[in-house]
Design a protein around this nucleic acid. Structure first.
Length: 880
DNA sequence: ATCTTCACG
DNA sequence: ACGTACGTGAAGATG
């Protein structure tokens, strides 16, 4: 069966360009789009095994669409020169790959592809169209699949008519109608104002096509009716513009596109010129006979009597890997470990470490100051600790390094890292173990090979990453902060926090009684029994049976979230009870029951697992259970904190939190005079903001003004938009915009920072924190408004939130060292983003207050002081 | 598995 | 004109 791949050249080049950082070779030629294009082609050829291949490009600037509508694609930002200069190289790349390319004056690649897929349909040929452009979905058919590139470039989502039906409820051709209604700002296609994807889909589900919507305009209601009627012609024209022309007069026919693979020499020559070292290496490996995907690794399964062989080579170990099964490392099962030396990987079953013969190996793991490289030292340390084994002194961790190099990288597994760095790949865990209910360990030879291969890959990945860490100036961040922090976290987690099961159960009983009471009330008011936890059933009751007004809808039905319910509160007595039910049942299920499940029987403690490689900003996250979202805002919830106790009699809980750390950081990095002054004089920042923004004296600031100023300050930190602020304050967008303008008039430095950071992000494709933590923003130059705006807000927020994360992490590492120096018995227990929690014996309370303050306030000196508030109590509730 | 809701900073 | 505030994790319902 023949299979044709058609690549939308311009679309993919664009995608590749914005998805990858702006690489350039030693000649200063930018190569990121070429690189992205190359990896995509390699992957396509390998995965799809095409028999026919073509890349289509747009030609010239004026297409037939401009003849009808001269604004077509007007307003679109010019292609940046860094990308245009890569197009000739991409053309050369096609030649090196031996792939035919095609373009035709006056037509876009879409139309060429449309015409070819039509021919393919007629000839019963299987086609895969690869593009980043959703419009192309209109070409899907039984023969034609559309592959849309997802985030990045290497991943692709395939659409056939069935998947389109599933996702949009539309036939492929109706995609044109959808665009006719929605328009497309990037191509300057107008559509109907106010109609986005949601409304567009709703209209099409009801009427089927643009024409039918226009025929039934009388059935529509309110604003919608007016808008559709007023823009009927726009909709018709937009539909025409969005329709791919499938009758391009061209000579080319599908049977002339046969693809016979590439000549490695030609490709290698191109790679050399582009300086694609990793791709070259990969090709050479492949040429040397080792199949890249299925490289076989010499693995030796170590038995008790052959342990001495490994033990004699301990200082030759280049990397090791420990397989921990299960999501929660505190009860993870260690099923094997591999130690990679230059010529062979040794596979060891974990039981061996607890035998006399295994002791030297256990000692090697335990010892510091050794060159140890691994994957996820934190997880290993926890899993092994529960079997009484110590792990220390890891000097390179490829998971952690991968996170720092790209915190949003999709697949953080060993395989994912290997693929990202162009290192010979290995089977996915899923292929070896199966997943979900099908999870099963393979025979020991297969297991040993898989784990051995991972250890070897860890070594190769580490070598690559070390270069990158150097070039991105992340050595300090990695070696002096994140790596030591991983040990600090493990210590805190293993310490755990004492939780009173009895008090938790007592409070649970109280809540159960309240729930029964309020449930009865709700059922009475609703007129029938239903599942109060089901938004669907609740929606039926409220909006169909009780006839309450629909405020907001979700994808699947009526929205019943707290925001909606609060709006409905005056309309019906049931609403207040529902809000109360929601509040209490959340406490019951997530906090009472959830926490009870996590208390270890042996110790009466909860051991959370802090994740160091999840949050895109550099923050930690907490799981099993999450101890970073224990209630505090409402009293009923705050009571939960009473069950968190010191683990020794008469000790106290000491909680220390940074006051306004994010705004202080903003003051420091923006150097805004007003903001710096406010903190240097230790003024109440929200009151001060209110004074400046509303132009009043301190004594004139009332509660409402302060509340609004506070919301503006939050907005500033989040990357403000008038819409977001208006939603938060329940005011109009115009009013919100005015507040923002007034704010920026006063805080000029903040305004300058916001503008600069977005500009910088657009130029470099990334933003950084004070400690050079980095976050790529591939979408910062996207043509899609939503994607781009999101990236812009992220550009403003990440340096702030991320620097706050840097600072508290620094404080944690320094604090752990300081506590050792001081020889205190006190223990660090928890971190909640801007707060550290300790348990402290009575005679150390004063000393700890002093050193906690010194360490946290002095962790990273800024131009404004950092301020820490400390309190103590007999439990976490009292330490407020 | 995905969606909705809600807890925290 | 477009339509989201930034960053997380967990529970329960539902397909």
């Amino acid at each position: 069966m023949s299979k044709l791949i058609i690549v939308d050249g311009n679309s993919i080049a664009n995608r590749a360009f914005y998805a990858l950082p702006l690489l350039s070779n030693s000649q200063g030629v930018h190569t990121n789009a070429v690189y992205g294009f190359t990896t995509m082609l390699l992957k396509l050829i390998e995965d799809e095994q095409p028999t026919h291949f073509l890349v289509a490009f747009d030609a010239g600037k004026v297409t037939f669409r401009h003849a009808d509508y001269k604004e077509y694609k007007g307003g679109r930002a010019k292609t940046p020169p860094e990308l245009s200069e890569q197009f000739p190289l991409i053309r050369e790349l096609m030649t090196a790959f031996g792939i035919q390319q095609f373009e035709l004056d006056g037509y876009e690649a879409d139309d060429i592809i449309g015409t070819l897929t039509k021919q393919a349909d007629e000839q019963q040929m299987e086609v895969l169209v690869v593009t980043g452009d959703k419009d192309m979905l209109q070409l899907a058919s039984d023969q034609v699949t559309i592959g849309l590139t997802r985030k990045g470039i290497s991943e692709m989502e395939k659409y056939d008519p069935d998947t389109i039906e599933e996702k949009y409820g539309l036939k492929p051709l109706q995609i044109i109608d959808l665009k006719g209604l929605m328009g497309d700002s990037s191509d300057n296609i107008p559509g109907i104002p106010g109609v986005g994807e949601k409304t567009g889909l709703k209209l099409l589900h009801a009427y089927g096509s643009v024409e039918e919507v226009l025929n039934h305009v009388e059935e529509l209601k309110g604003k919608m009716k007016e808008k559709v009627a007023a823009h009927a012609d726009d909709a018709k024209m937009s539909k025409e513009l969005a329709t791919i022309f499938r009758e391009v007069p061209m000579e080319l026919a599908v049977d002339q596109l046969a693809y016979n693979g590439y000549e490695e020499e030609k490709l290698a020559e191109m790679f050399k010129r582009m300086e694609f070292k990793s791709l070259l290496e990969k090709m050479e490996l492949k040429a040397s006979g080792e199949p890249v995907g299925e490289e076989s690794v010499p693995v030796e399964i170590v038995e008790k009597d052959s342990l001495d062989k490994l033990v004699s080579r301990l200082d030759e170990i280049e990397a090791f890997y420990v397989e921990v099964i299960g999501d929660n490392p505190h009860n993870g099962e260690v099923v094997g470990m591999a130690f990679a030396c230059q010529d062979v990987c040794y596979f060891v079953r974990p039981e061996m470490l607890s035998t006399p013969e295994g002791e030297p190996l256990a000692a090697w793991l335990r010892e510091g100051e050794l060159s140890k490289t691994t994957y996820d030292a934190h997880r290993i340390q926890l899993a092994l600790a529960w079997s009484g084994l110590d792990t220390r002194g890891v000097q390179f961790d490829v998971l952690l390094a991968g996170y720092l190099l790209d915190p949003t990288q999709g697949d953080p597994s060993v395989k994912g890292l290997a693929d990202a760095y162009g290192i010979p790949s290995l089977p996915a865990d899923e292929e070896v173990y199966g997943k979900g209910a099908k999870f099963k360990l393979p025979d020991s030879q297969t297991l040993a090979e898989h784990i051995g291969r991972k250890a070897l890959t860890v070594k190769r990945v580490a070598d690559k990453q070390k270069e990158h860490i150097e070039t991105l100036e992340m050595k300090e961040l990695f070696y002096d902060l994140e790596l030591p922090l991983s040990g600090v976290l493990a210590t805190m987690e293993l310490t755990g926090v004492k939780v009173s099961r009895e008090e938790l159960e007592d409070y649970g009983k109280e809540l159960t009684a309240k729930l029964a009471e309020v449930k009865a009330k709700i059922v009475e008011l609703a007129g029938r029994e239903f599942n109060l936890n089901s938004p669907k059933q609740l929606g039926e009751i409220l909006f169909e049976e009780l006839g309450l007004p629909v405020v907001k809808k979700t994808k699947t039905g009526y929205s019943t979230d707290a925001e909606v319910l609060e709006k409905l509160e005056p309309h019906h007595e049931i609403i207040g009870h529902l809000l109360y039910y929601r509040q209490i049942s959340k406490l019951q299920s997530t906090y009472i029951e959830g926490l009870l499940k996590e208390i270890r029987e042996e110790t009466g403690k909860i051991h959370t697992y802090y994740r160091q490689t999840i949050a895109a900003t550099g923050r930690l996250s907490s799981q099993y259970p999450n101890l970073q979202n224990i209630p505090i805002r409402l009293e009923e919830g705050r009571k939960i904190r009473k069950v968190f106790k010191p683990s020794e009699p008469d000790w106290s809980i000491l909680a220390a939190d940074y006051s306004q750390i994010e705004l202080r950081i903003l003051a420091h990095i923006s150097k805004d005079e007003k903001l710096m002054e406010a903190f240097q004089q230790d003024q109440d920042i929200h009151t001060k903001t209110a004074m400046d923004v509303f132009g009043v004296q301190a004594d004139e600031v009332d509660g409402e003004m302060r509340r609004r100023a506070k919301a503006v300050n939050f907005g500033i930190v989040y990357g403000i938009s008038d819409y977001g602020l208006s939603q938060n304050l329940g005011i109009t967008r115009k009013e919100a915009a005015q507040f923002i303008e007034q704010y920026f008039n006063v805080f000029e430095g903040v305004k300058r920072f916001m503008d600069e950071i977005v500009k910088e992000a657009k130029q470099n494709g990334h933003v950084s924190t004070l400690l050079k933590r980095r976050r790529n923003l591939p979408e910062i130059n996207a043509s899609n408004f939503n994607q781009r705006s999101f990236a812009e807000r992220t550009a403003m927020n990440t340096p702030i939130q991320g620097t706050a994360a840097d600072i508290i992490k620094l404080a944690m590492v320094q604090m752990m060292e300081r506590m050792e120096q001081e020889g205190v018995k006190s223990r660090m227990l928890l971190q909640v983003h801007d707060e550290l929690v300790f348990e402290v014996p009575p005679d150390e309370v004063e000393l700890m207050k002093k050193i906690v303050r010194e360490t946290m306030e002095g962790a990273l000196p800024l131009e404004v002081p950092l301020k820490v508030e400390i309190s103590t109590g007999k439990d976490w509730y009292e330490a407020k």
